[in-house]
Design a binder for these strands. Structure first.
Lengths: 355, 355
DNA sequence: ATTAGTTATGCAATCGATTACACGCGGCCG
DNA sequence: CGGCCGCGTGTAATCGATTGCATAACTAAT
């Protein structure tokens, strides 16, 4: 009973044709006569044949697989993008390999390996902080490896890019706070080295400038995109005597951590402080209070990035110039932001509102 | 400048040895002399050789890749398990293919394809609701495909399984509510057909029974593991005249949706109701109120499942009998549960105003 | 010195599918 | 009638790496 998985040879034998014909019948049916086609289908059915992808990959030098490299799968922001990517890839017959990109050379080596070893046909990179030289070496060769960078921009790299309008969105988020009457506005930063962090800060500063304000260095809280860092920032906030009345947080997770920290000391949002986040995570509408936030079109972003990558994989000349798609984020107003209180309740000492 | 990626042939030519020797130098160094080994390394360095995985896979019939199939990548519970799996796999030199298992035959077909086409060496299944027949066909053949089921049990299937103690954990969660003096305890269910849902309900009922109580059918709210379903359940809760004083929710997400729905109508947790969740998501400690919940050892679960699968892939006879690992969940008490209010009969209409 | 054993290496087959090229056959056109 | 074209098919080379078997060069043992 030692049956091996059937190969194209078995099918050929059964259908009484050559392996070449079987191959053609399966991948370009129009090249084969109707009768033969039927015999081959039947033979496939009977033998239970399935393609051996390794054989095909070897010959065609393509793996029908894309590699998605991201800084943290656990982050719900990335995981929903990954979801969209997987859907799109599946629809086009591609598999998705995921690679956690902690940091350091080790993982870069692995990334390179995956690509060079013909396990993946292209790279979808969801992290802007990867060594550019290395990537360009990969992308610049004669048989260049298709790369699409999504979410985070790698400046001047010339890679195809799909991202959201971080600067502009941050500006609008901050403007929302200004529109509500806030003048003392702080920012909960993202990680230092991160491009997205910087863009959001830029948009923040730009909105302030447009209203004749300037960022107060004290009110830029260190953060890291995660809840813990928001929580720690709250401690610093609480220790200050001159506090902002509103905060633009670099993302929802840190906003939540921040609010959670404040709440433990009786600072209530939006009564005492307004907070606007970024991302519109699933929990945002169900948090207490429901979070005002910039909604990034995550599904679209993932889908379009995957689409573009596969287009290039299938026809390297498809795109003349580097692609650059910018998707617009949308402000979702909920309950974590409110018009500034009239009498300026927000005192930690004897501070007067600037109005 | 039309350089192709170098092959083992190029290395062999450069090092003045045969391809066989190069292959051996790279994968079993102890079989070649020291001098040759050095020449080969040098040649590899100079030519910039990297292995072509397709070639190796074809010959060795192994892809150095595992397939992880899950119902929803976006779900933070799964994404952190996926993270752990990826880490373990990476450490052992394996790649990870992910497959979203929406439902229906189409995806099952894809799953089968991946396995049969030699793109993956084994399957890590994070979903108990897959057609068992098909899986057993895959697993039962002469050259069986290694399968490990994690998170969700497939009863009587004989698959290797790694999971958490759902029944027992649910019992302890409910017991916690009983210990706080609650007697009128409801349950926010998971999806109907789901094994895990049922196990958690079983544990719930068991805890009640141990205290001489029984589940009140009215107080078992339909749910779906997601926030929306928790939110809807809240509406039903609000419409009832006889309400439970505590709820055991099938998971944190639905607990959050439920609390969010209640809050909109002034029902405050834990003052008016106690809620215990399941999973200990990242947001749990930062929710308002911080959630009491059963922490599942997600990282351990993912890691151990991956470990077991790869063990089997590398040595199919490694395990004599079907593996079955059960990990213990841990109750994390936070602020969403409280001792029942003294006179608190919790009747609708008799609500104390919230502010 | 002969034999046996060990070590290092090469030769060539092999994994499974694809595809360039060649061939045979029938129809069509000049 | 002869040449050309196109269709359907088969033959065999090919993709890149691994590995069973053979061989050669030494060492050790008798």
């Amino acid at each position: 009973m030692e049956r091996k998985t059937p190969t194209i040879q078995d099918v050929a034998r059964f259908a009484n044709v050559s392996t070449a014909t079987v191959s053609r019948a399966l991948s370009s049916p129009e090249k084969v006569s109707e009768g033969t086609r039927a015999r081959v289908s039947e033979a496939v059915r009977v033998t239970g044949y399935t393609l051996n992808q390794a054989g095909r990959s070897l010959r065609q030098r393509s793996a029908k697989t894309i590699l998605v490299a991201l800084p943290d799968i656990r982050n719900p922001f990335f995981s929903s993008i990954l979801d969209a990517i997987e859907r799109e890839a599946a629809a086009r017959g591609y598999g998705v390999l995921v690679l956690n990109l902690y940091f350091g050379h080790e993982t870069i080596r692995r990334l390179q390996d995956f690509l060079l070893s013909n396990r993946a046909d292209g790279l979808l990179l969801l992290d802007g902080s990867v060594d550019t030289n290395l990537l360009q070496a990969l992308a610049g060769q004669a048989d260049a490896i298709p790369i699409v960078v999504a979410c985070e921009e790698i400046p001047n790299s010339g890679f195809h890019t799909v991202l959201t309008d971080n600067v502009d969105a941050a500006e609008r988020a901050t403007q929302h706070l200004i529109d509500l009457g806030h003048r003392r506005i702080g920012h909960l930063l993202g990680p230092d080295h991160n491009v997205v962090s910087r863009e959001r800060f830029t948009g923040f500063a730009r909105a302030l400038a447009a209203s004749g304000l300037a960022p107060v260095p004290e009110w830029s809280f260190r953060g890291n995109f995660d809840m813990e860092s928001g929580f720690s920032a709250a401690a610093r906030f609480l220790s200050m005597t001159e506090r902002p009345t509103a905060i633009f947080a670099a993302n929802d997770e840190s906003a939540i951590g921040f609010l959670s920290g404040l709440r433990q000391h009786g600072i209530i949002c939006p009564r005492d402080i307004s907070v606007v986040g970024f991302d519109d995570l699933g929990v945002a509408p169900h948090y207490v209070p429901p979070l005002t936030t910039m909604r990034q079109p995550r599904e679209a972003l993932g889908r379009m990035a995957a689409e573009a990558l596969i287009d290039i994989v299938e026809d390297p000349d498809a795109l003349g110039i580097p692609l650059r798609i910018v998707l617009r984020s949308e402000l979702v107003v909920r309950e974590s932001t409110a018009r500034i209180a009239r009498g300026g309740t927000n005192k930690a000492g004897a501070d007067t509102p600037s109005s």
